[in-house]
Design a protein around this nucleic acid. Structure first.
Lengths: 338, 338
DNA sequence: CTGAAAGCGCTTACAG
DNA sequence: CTGAAAGCGCTTACAG
């Protein structure tokens, strides 16, 4: 293994001190009043020798790693994978690298991952928090580590967050259904205790109430697998004969629902209309195409990384928190045509 | 920001040397013949003070970071996201952390990412290589850095790889179609120059030839977006009237094809049967469900990380390379029913 | 303008 | 069995 060049090698080759080279490499030539010629000479030589500073050593002495820890619920989920992709891209442009992981929405696993990220000294965090993570996030903040909550916030934790305006998005989608004349709109959700689920349910309830209709909520166990969800939904749909529209709180639930409807030989939108929260590329492929509440993924990614960069740039004490609720977009397709 | 504990703090608190503590923490207590009592006392104190060694410092002095660089084509793609998820899990169990990135199959971007990973001193690499990366991978190997090629190999680069047996998988799927009595089987692929595309095409060609049928290949530009692909396929299908089955070389192509068939109001499998390379959860949801060549994702992930760990463990000189071709599984569903 | 020196927090060869 | 010391490759306060 070829020995890597160190700053000392460069210093020796050029017969000047490491200090001077370090200053030049870190853009402090002007500030330290180093002559332009010298700076240029060094830069040229460094480029020619293809010298790359050792980031490990740099991090050890500066305390910054230029790494951001991104904890999503599951990196293999379409929504999170997309978000991760964009965040990676944007972070990269600002000199930051991303290190991801999947929390599986498991509190214990997430706590372990945080402690691993701390050991690795990541500079900042973007987290889709499972319920119960309040103390751990507060712990990070107390130690001066910036955290941006993503997709859901944590009550009582005062830090930046970027979430969808779930309440309004859900309200609007439901109202769209009532406006279309649907009268028995069911809401299918996960029995999880997260802020976004809660807000989606509330939006639905309000819109139904505003239209003087009766709500009907079906909760599916969070831990059930795909086939179990389908089974649950088949049962539910079968016994809810008068339901004329179903609003699924996530796209995965919608997939289970579509499968269930297929099994029941029911047709969309003739027998029952459907709307899904969270768009998915597939919704636009099969017919009927599926009406969906689309999260503006790029925008969410952008806002998150921006919020974090702002905290990262802030000198101690001047923290500016950003609490952002991004508006969703209702994409109307064939599954709700009347 | 609370000052973190260092090994020196622990040493002071316990009135023994850093050396001893370091030995104990690294499981060398026995080897260094440190008394059990002392070792236990230290461990207890470390646990109680919640001392975590600084990985940065550790890495700087050992030269190991316990990080693996995982470069996939696109982390937001279903297949790669799944693989990444499993690799992360397995690596974690062996004390390694994963740092991912997406190459977008772009040579230049990939080269940059490699150089970024080198700066970060990752211990090993798992790479889905874009065409033309031969020299860069060889460069890593020359510097003693282990590389496992994933999903596709690179001709002339002698290192471990884990790929699907694309040729056989493709041959078998095509043979299944000919056995079913289909006589005009088209093969839709991307015009990219990667080993796996090449092997899939060859498998198809051989199976068609073996059945004394004529091949029909349609190449779609790699850079086209979804709608462009659909358009191309609509044109292609319209003018290829006698085609009775289409074999798509990737699941994304299959999605475009399904959309195209929908636009043409053609029915599957009555008008034309379809098979997709790479299974997708959605293939089992909509009807007709889609026959697919499934990559055993978990197995691929497992083999890859194993191959890498083997190289990582090897003392210099005793490298054991693994060149693994994993068998695919043909999952027969409704889209090819006769 | 420039350099010698201390320090970041570990590991480990060496000496006893 | 245990410790003082050098070293990993940077940065930066300090001195000139």
């Amino acid at each position: 293994m070829a020995k890597r060049l160190s700053i000392r090698d460069i210093a020796n080759e050029l017969q000047i001190s490491k200090t001077t080279i370090s200053f030049i490499l870190n853009g402090k030539a002007k500030e330290k009043r180093i002559s332009d010629e010298l700076a240029e000479k060094v830069m040229k030589h460094v480029a020619q020798r293809a010298y790359k500073p050792n980031q490990l050593a740099k991090s050890l002495s500066t305390g910054k790693t230029m790494m951001i820890g991104l904890m999503v619920e599951n990196i293999s989920d379409y929504f999170f994978a997309q978000v991760a992709y964009h965040i990676e891209e944007l972070a990269y442009q600002h000199g930051y690298r991303i290190i991801y992981c999947s929390t599986d929405n498991d509190l214990h696993k997430t706590q372990e991952l945080i402690s691993m990220f701390r050991e690795r000294h990541v500079d900042g965090y973007i987290i889709t928090a499972p319920a119960g993570l309040e103390k751990d996030v507060q712990g990070l903040l107390d130690d001066g580590l910036p955290v941006v909550l993503f997709d859901r916030y944590l009550k009582g934790v005062d830090t930046s967050y970027v979430i969808l305006d779930n309440y309004k998005a859900s309200y609007d989608a439901t109202k769209y259904l009532t406006d279309q004349g649907f009268e028995n709109i069911a809401f299918v959700e996960l029995d999880s205790d997260q802020s976004q689920m809660h807000d989606r349910r509330e939006g639905y309830l309000q819109a139904v109430a505003d239209a003087h209709l009766a709500p009907l909520i079906k909760k599916i166990p969070f831990t059930s697998d795909f086939d179990q969800k389908v089974k649950e939904l088949v049962k539910f749909i079968r016994k809810s004969e008068d339901v004329d529209a179903i609003f699924f709180a996530t796209n995965y639930l919608a997939f289970s629902g579509i499968k269930a409807l297929n099994q029941l030989k029911m047709h969309t939108p003739q027998d029952v209309a459907i709307v899904a929260f969270d768009d998915h590329e597939v919704f636009n492929i099969y017919s009927p195409t599926v009406t969906a509440v689309a999260q503006p993924i790029k925008k969410l990614a952008q806002q998150s990384i921006n919020a974090l960069l702002k905290m990262l740039d802030a000198k101690d004490g001047t923290q500016t928190l950003e609490k952002i609720e991004v508006a969703a977009e209702l994409i109307i397709r064939d599954s709700t045509k009347v």
